[in-house]
């Protein structure tokens, strides 16, 4: 086993483990904390794929900004009746888990038995593509229009969030 595959195995195992803990914990705070662990594992996996910029953005935006928002709202709501909310195992959940397992089998079957296309690039080229410089230059030339549209989305989100969370519209 090479060093790369060892790193991948460790990160992948902790990503799957933390994801399972996210969906099984009763307390939403614990779920949120395990979700942060999952985001850090994914950032590490992006680094193994030579995508430095995406890895940093993953930590800054997801683990930094979005999860702070989640934890803030969980603390703000202060759910007292959590025991009542988390129902036990019902037949609905078992059916849902069965369907999800079938879906996973399907995905894995397709991915294992499909013909893998050969890698078309070298490692040095991959390192070059993931840099802030290269992504920035592409973002401001070829992808300028979608980039400007995201500003519209964010403005709409800000206005929408304020309108929704406001107690009463005057």
């Amino acid at each position: 086993m090479t060093l790369e595959s060892v790193i991948f195995s460790v990160l992948a195992a902790s990503a799957v483990g933390s994801a399972l803990l996210v969906v099984t914990r009763r307390n939403p705070v614990m779920s949120a904390l395990y979700l942060i662990v999952n985001f850090f594992c994914l950032a590490g996996l992006y680094l193994t794929l030579h995508a430095q910029f995406i890895a940093i953005i993953q930590i800054l935006v997801y683990a930094g900004a979005i999860m702070v928002l989640f934890v803030f709202v969980i603390m703000l709501l202060n759910l007292g009746d959590e025991r009542k909310l988390s129902d036990g195992v019902s037949w609905k959940k078992i059916v849902a888990a069965g369907f999800c397992a079938a879906l996973l089998m399907e995905f894995v079957y397709i991915l294992i038995y499909s013909e893998p296309s050969p890698a078309v690039m070298s490692a040095s080229m991959a390192t070059e593509i993931g840099t802030v410089e290269y992504i920035g230059s592409q973002l401001f030339t070829k992808f300028l229009f979608p980039f400007e549209i995201t500003s519209l989305i964010l403005t709409a989100a800000i206005v929408g969030a304020i309108v929704l969370a406001k107690r009463k519209l005057d």
Partner: peptide, 27 residues
């Protein structure tokens, strides 16, 4: 360059775990 097949399988696994959370949890 590492082979991307393990990454795709991991991605599918995480996606299915998330989907299971969406359909099974009530919070």
């Amino acid at each position: 360059m590492p082979d991307i097949q393990p990454y795709l399988i991991l991605s599918a696994t995480l996606f299915v775990i998330g989907a299971a959370g969406v359909v099974a949890r009530r919070n």
